[in-house]
């Protein structure tokens, strides 16, 4: 028996919108720790890891570890039927081939339940080793989204370079080149508007902009984004989800062959 009640149901709606472009089908894993997902895109270039900790739910009952295969576009279709202020409850019985999403309006005058068919998904689970990153950049998520969108109108790839001067996003295409430098800026009114760079050593890596743009679908989840870079390692683009957890996107770099 599984029953997870999320008062801020809009978070789950935003999570689905953030990952459904990247991943079609995925297993949601439910355990005492929380509600989680790990999935790769179909090209095995990017990986998404989601965690919603059990403490973030108003009610969290998960009698035994359960893995539920879902088509994310179908799940998003159902969650779009929930109001932004609705409380969402996810329910499943042991051994059932369906999951139920229950939506309650804030004043309890409308209660809806949507039952969705589960699917068997043979997914690989990758071990993500702890890494010391050469550079960690924290910046406003909207600013990062703007940069990725702007650069993708010029080129297909972005070179992200971190030096003590700041973080530089560069691209080149048929019509020309573009460079955007963001300097560290801690003297802002609100901490979420700051750009903070922690650099152990300079790093420069090349990534496909198509994936970066896809990651920015998570922008509504968090005011800030953290970009962690190390030479020859996948970049980690992390959006924290309120007090509940995170979505982390890993993207393999383009490398010399």
């Amino acid at each position: 028996m599984l029953e997870l009640r999320l008062v801020q149901g809009s978070l789950l709606k935003k999570v689905l919108e953030a990952i459904r472009e990247l991943v079609n089908d995925a297993n949601f894993d439910c355990s005492a720790t929380g509600f989680s997902l790990q999935a790769m895109d179909s090209s095995h270039v990017a990986l998404v890891a989601l965690l919603l900790r059990s403490e973030g739910f108003e009610h969290y009952r998960c009698d035994r570890n359960l893995s539920m295969g879902m088509n994310l576009n179908n799940m998003a279709k159902m969650l779009r039927c929930a109001g932004n202020d609705d409380i969402i409850t996810i329910k499943a019985d042991d051994g059932s081939d369906t999951v139920t999403f229950m939506f309650e309006s804030p004043n309890q005058d409308k209660i809806a339940d949507f039952e969705m068919k589960l699917m068997d998904i043979d997914s690989e689970h990758l071990g993500i080793p702890d890494a010391e990153y050469h550079a960690i950049v924290r910046m406003p998520s909207a600013e990062f989204a703007r940069i990725c969108k702007d650069l993708s109108s010029i080129g297909d790839t972005v070179v992200i370079s971190v030096t003590k001067e700041g973080v530089k996003f560069s691209t080149a295409g048929d019509i020309g080149t573009a460079n955007i430098v963001c300097r560290q800026n801690k003297t802002v009114d609100k901490p979420e508007e700051a750009t903070v760079i922690e650099m152990q050593e300079p790093v420069s890596l090349t990534f496909a902009l198509r994936y970066m743009n896809s990651f920015t679908k998570a922008t509504p989840l968090s005011e800030t984004v953290t970009i962690s870079l190390s030479s020859e390692l996948p970049v980690v683009v992390e959006y924290k989800i309120a007090d509940m957890g995170y979505i982390r996107f890993y993207l393999a770099p383009k490398i010399e062959e």
């Binding site: 095995h44 990017a46 689970h125 990758l126 071990g127």
Partner: peptide
């Protein structure tokens, strides 16, 4: 020219 690496190059099956 650079080639796109796949994620399994860095993270192994667990």
């Amino acid at each position: 020219l650079k080639a796109q690496a796949r994620i399994e190059r860095f993270f192994c099956n667990s």
